[in-house]
Design a protein around this nucleic acid. Sequence first.
DNA 1: CTGAAAGCGCTTACAG
DNA 2: CTGAAAGCGCTTACAG
Lengths: 340, 340
Amino acid sequence: MKRVTRLKDLAEGLGVSITTVSKALNDHPDISAKRKKEILDYAKEVNYIPNQVARSFRQQRTKMIGIVISDNSNPFYARVIRGIEETLSVHGYHCVVMNSHEDVDKEIQFIGELRGLNVAGVILTPASGNKKSRELLKNYDIPYVLVNRYIERDEDTYVVLDDEQAAYMTARHLCSYGNDKIFFLNFLPGVSSAQNRLAGYKRALKECGFSYESNMVVSGCTNQTDGYESMKRILEKNKPPFCVMCYSDYIAIGAICAIQERGFHLPHDVALCGNDDIGILSFVKPRLTTIGAPKLRMGIASAELLIELLESRQEETEEEIKKEEKHIVMKPELIIRETS
Amino acid sequence: MKRVTRLKDLAEGLGVSITTVSKALNDHPDISAKRKKEILDYAKEVNYIPNQVARSFRQQRTKMIGIVISDNSNPFYARVIRGIEETLSVHGYHCVVMNSHEDVDKEIQFIGELRGLNVAGVILTPASGNKKSRELLKNYDIPYVLVNRYIERDEDTYVVLDDEQAAYMTARHLCSYGNDKIFFLNFLPGVSSAQNRLAGYKRALKECGFSYESNMVVSGCTNQTDGYESMKRILEKNKPPFCVMCYSDYIAIGAICAIQERGFHLPHDVALCGNDDIGILSFVKPRLTTIGAPKLRMGIASAELLIELLESRQEETEEEIKKEEKHIVMKPELIIRETS
DNA sequence: CTGAAAGCGCTTACAG
DNA sequence: CTGAAAGCGCTTACAG
């Protein structure tokens, strides 16, 4: 196994000090142009790659960012992560991705591991109702940005969709069908996005003169199968026409399956909306009416926000760290296609 | 900013040496049970988290694995990554995910960055035809596993689908329709999987007594849009009935869109197969006939293979490193649904 | 502009 | 069984 080239090897090869080589490579002003060029040329020639572990250790800070989400293979988070990765990459940061699967204990364990890795920051989608992670990050003094959900509306720094508005737009749209029933297949009730969607749904019903009935809302749907099963149960007790709004496209696809199985037609018998605009579904029949969420942009925005946080921290002294929470709330877009 | 607890703080707190604390925490045999318990209890009490950066630096090895794929938001890779992450996580490793977007230069740059991070190993899907990354990894002496593609059939360590067999099964299935034309919307021609699929396609044609015509194969399809456009072009020059096999479900969905737009029916006018079995599509009409690829298992297998490589390296002396390349070739499964 | 020296927090070979 | 000391490869405050 051949030895890796170190700063010391460069210094010896050129007959200068380690300090000088380090300064040249780090673009320190305090060095003559000639020397610098000499050193940089030589470093390139021998393909010197600085040991980032040593560097991070010495500087007591890494260029590593922890990304803790429920599941990287969920198309929603997959897009968010892509946005994050691309943005961080440009700024010289690297992403450590961890899947919590909505498991609070796992999430807490991950935060500890990230602390041990001395990550520069964390981008987190907190597991349903988990306040502890946020506390830990604060305790550890790790800058963080929440994405897609928040814990404390006014205190966290986060990037979310305007969920209240998204649900409001969807429900208003469905109200126009004039059916008296708009079912809502919602997500886990402990999550801010689900709570805000419920609020938007209620607001729309109220405005349209529909009464809110709690048994029209199904909580805790997380995937296609939940959508399918919930829809089946609804169809057993209710005769179309009616409307259905779904927390996600995933759930919507499951629900559509149940509806078609019973021989009903969309949007004629059941008018249905999804949420998220998962790319592949725009090519699929019946083309799903949904809410377009800027997943990539949410990723990009959370990465940019975190970088901003990190940089402001560099510049400020300990005293004057301004605890400015920032909230980015993205506009949803109603994409009307064929299912409503 | 409060100071982080170090080994030294534990030592001082307990009135023992740093060495002893380190031994206790690392489960060194060379320490009394009583001392060890004392130290472990205290460490837990003050919530001591070892500094992995310092540790990695000292040991000249990290628990970091680089994952370099084209795009983490591609549902195929998303599942593979999930399998990798879960497996590595159990073994105490962490994943640094990087998207190369089939860009050779970017991929090479990433390998360099991973070298700088001193990763323990790399799991790589090499960009189309890129032999350089593999060379670099060898030069840098970084253990690696290729996933979903290989560069040198006999020399690399990799986990792939049996692509030849997958295409063979699909084409045989389509041959049974007795149409004389089986189009093949293939991927980038520089990639081993695309080459092997072509071989399987040819084998099936030959066995079924169909002649191979190169103009029935469209190379370079990567996404829905390519599938859609290619299918449109085929429909302009060819009248159904005929068959189409697609390199991916993505491409298949695009192709279906084009077919339906022209008013043709599946499988009556056009019998079509995808490949990958992207989960969400099993709920969608017409339900796509496809090849089931064990994406999660491919991820798990590549992670396990890499860990095996890392551990064997630990145990062996420099002399006796056995350069055993391992190739895992996974069985494809033909899932016949509604499009053929 | 250049360089000697300290030190980041661990692990490990070694002495007792 | 315990601990003193060296050292992993850098950066940085400081002296010249």
